[in-house]
């Protein structure tokens, strides 16, 4: 197993997926790295590496998110234990991007976790069969779930706005 090659091939996609799933780039980076370390420790079967990485990365990221939520509740109860210090000011472009990210995360949060995973795995080019295996449903139902999720997201994001780049070549 060539870990360096697999890292180069899959890391960017895995990080992007996890960042979109969790809304937390740092957590996504940690979870992605954890997935690759586990891949070295216990290599998956050949041909299943990508799906395996995404499954392990997702579990790691979601578990970390649950831990952060528990800690946030504790800090809410004990505000004197909250870390001090202001974050450095971000450049305008970064602020705009962060604002867009918040809006996207708020919209994605209106979907059940399974639907979020389905949409985001689709964005990474997974087949319907792979998506079905990852979230525990049938291949035939993935298309319907994607359409329903898009319908739901259209209420929170401008998915129906006129766009000059919209595909007209039917």
């Amino acid at each position: 197993m060539d870990a360096a090659r697999l890292f180069a091939e899959h890391h960017a996609s895995l990080f992007r997926y996890l960042a979109r799933l969790t809304g937390d780039a740092d957590a996504a980076a940690d979870a992605a790295q954890e997935a690759f370390v586990r891949m070295v420790e216990r290599p998956p079967a050949p041909g299943e590496t990508r799906a395996w990485l995404f499954r392990v990365g997702t579990n790691s990221a979601l578990e970390a998110a649950r831990t952060r939520t528990r800690r946030a509740r504790l800090l809410d109860a004990r505000p004197e234990r909250a870390p001090l210090g202001d974050a450095p000011p971000a450049p305008d472009e970064a602020l705009e991007r962060a604002e867009r990210r918040r809006a996207v995360q708020a919209a994605l949060a209106t979907l059940p976790e399974r639907d979020r995973r389905i949409l985001l795995m689709r964005e990474e080019g997974f087949s319907h069969r792979e998506i079905a295996e990852a979230v525990g449903t049938t291949t035939g139902s993935v298309g319907t779930m994607i359409a329903r999720a898009l319908d739901r997201l259209a209420a929170a994001l401008p998915l129906d706005e006129d766009d000059d780049d919209a595909d007209t070549a039917d």
Binding site: A19, R20, A25, R97, A103, V104, E123, L157, L159, D160
Partner: peptide
Amino acid sequence: RQLRRRSARLSGILLASDPAAP
């Protein structure tokens, strides 16, 4: 056409809001 447009728009919105790669 509606689903195609929504899929393309979602892809664009996600790309425009992605954090920088670590």
